[in-house]
């Protein structure tokens, strides 16, 4: 319950934050909402010597529309995303995913950037940003860069971020005409994390065939992943139940599937297929509705 001692730093600027991170290296950790890091510190599974609190960088909490994208500041809380009228209209998958994270207190405090940078293998956001083909933007003393979501999650709790890089923005392309998205999740009965969480985006052609499918899956492997095999199986095919079923069967293909007390690897693979099918079904339904709207 009691974390180890650390030094606490409140940088006033991004540059300062980045500089501090470079200085402390492995001894330092960024602190955003703290809802991934602080529980680990209390269990003494993490004991950083320096905490660099980013929450004073208020400029990093925003949701705005810019051209074909919505841009979300990394320090935006899950709740702001859940309740954002703009996102409900422009990118409803994000509020739908946010609603499934933790509980109201966690959503009030936890941030999308912190969640993504922590990259828990059962966190919800990774599935959504993968399916939305979002760009994750980061700043370091070397400047700013963007990373495709599919390249961001490297391994168990490891991202493509350098240790002095601060994740600053999630840039999400708006869904086009005839596109639908959905998030289907089975909650772990104790932790509330995803035993399996599947985000699916489906774009339909006028003839009802699948123009584009993007599926992000969390909770199943050591890191969240794009289910390319599912996507490929759907591409160009009519979005019939039979095709959705067949595509969903590839959900855990080639993945080193997690096992725990609540789901063996075999069962979790099965869950991945079922929840992928459900996410696809819901996304197709919405895509059809969007096409006729």
């Amino acid at each position: 319950m009691i974390p180890q001692s650390f030094e606490y730093h409140v940088p006033r600027t991004l540059e300062e934050a980045s500089r501090l991170a470079a200085q402390f290296g492995a001894d330092g950790k960024f602190l955003a909402g703290g809802h991934s890091l602080i529980p680990m510190m209390k269990l003494r599974l993490a004991a950083p010597k320096h905490l660099i609190d980013l929450t004073c960088l208020r400029d990093l909490a925003y949701i705005r529309e810019e051209g074909e994208h919505v841009r979300i500041g990394a320090l935006t809380t899950h709740f702001r995303i859940e309740s954002s009228a703009l996102l409900k209209e422009k990118c409803p998958l994000l509020p739908e995913t946010a609603r499934e994270i933790g509980d109201v207190q966690v959503r009030n405090r936890g941030t999308i950037g912190g969640n993504l940078a922590h990259s828990d293998p059962a966190a919800d956001w990774p599935a959504a940003v993968l399916a939305l083909e979002a760009e994750l933007r980061a700043v370091s003393p070397r400047g700013e860069r963007g990373m495709a979501a599919k390249d961001f999650f490297v391994d168990l709790m490891t991202t493509a971020l350098a240790s002095d890089e601060v994740l600053v923005e999630i840039k999400v392309p708006q869904l086009g005409h005839g596109t639908g998205a959905a998030y289907a999740k089975l909650h772990h009965p104790a932790s509330g994390y995803a035993m399996v969480g599947v985000a699916a985006v489906i774009a339909l052609r006028d003839n009802g065939a699948v123009e584009r499918a993007a599926v992000g899956i969390t909770g199943v492997g050591p890191k969240a992943y794009r289910a390319f095999a599912v996507e490929t199986a759907l591409h160009g095919k009519p979005a019939t139940q039979a095709h959705l079923n067949a595509a969903a069967a590839h959900a855990a293909e080639g993945v080193d599937v997690n096992a725990d007390l609540y789901a063996s690897a075999e069962y979790r693979s099965h869950l991945a297929r079922v929840y992928t099918r459900r996410a696809l079904e819901a996304a197709v339904k919405r895509a059809r509705a969007a096409a006729t709207a």
Binding site: P39, L43, P189, A190, S191, L261
Partner: peptide, 8 residues
């Protein structure tokens, strides 16, 4: 099942 993250 040593924490309430594990014990439901």
């Amino acid at each position: 099942t040593g924490t309430l993250m594990d014990y439901a």
